[in-house]
């Protein structure tokens, strides 16, 4: 079966770029997320986390 389906995508132009794009998207995503989280001030985080219990 592997032989049978392995090359199905090779006929699509530029399929090799797929894994590269995937990796880049993921890398950028997580770097962005890192900045999102660690540029928060501690007291702001504390204030936000208390939202449910201070009703």
């Amino acid at each position: 079966m592997l032989k049978f389906v392995k090359y199905t995508l090779e006929t699509i132009d530029g399929v090799a770029v797929y894994p590269v794009i995937s990796l880049l998207i993921c890398f950028t995503f997580f770097v962005g997320l890192f900045f999102w989280v660690f540029t928060y001030k501690k007291d702001k985080i504390k204030e936000l986390s208390e939202l449910p219990i201070k009703e």
């Binding site: 997320l33 999102w36 989280v37 660690f38 928060y40 985080i45 504390k46 936000l48 986390s49 208390e50 449910p52 219990i53």
Partner: peptide
């Protein structure tokens, strides 16, 4: 947090 009456362990972690 409501039932335990204390905030979530890490709000930063919840964003991630």
């Amino acid at each position: 947090p409501k039932a335990a009456n204390r905030p979530v362990y890490s709000y930063r972690l919840s964003i991630i």
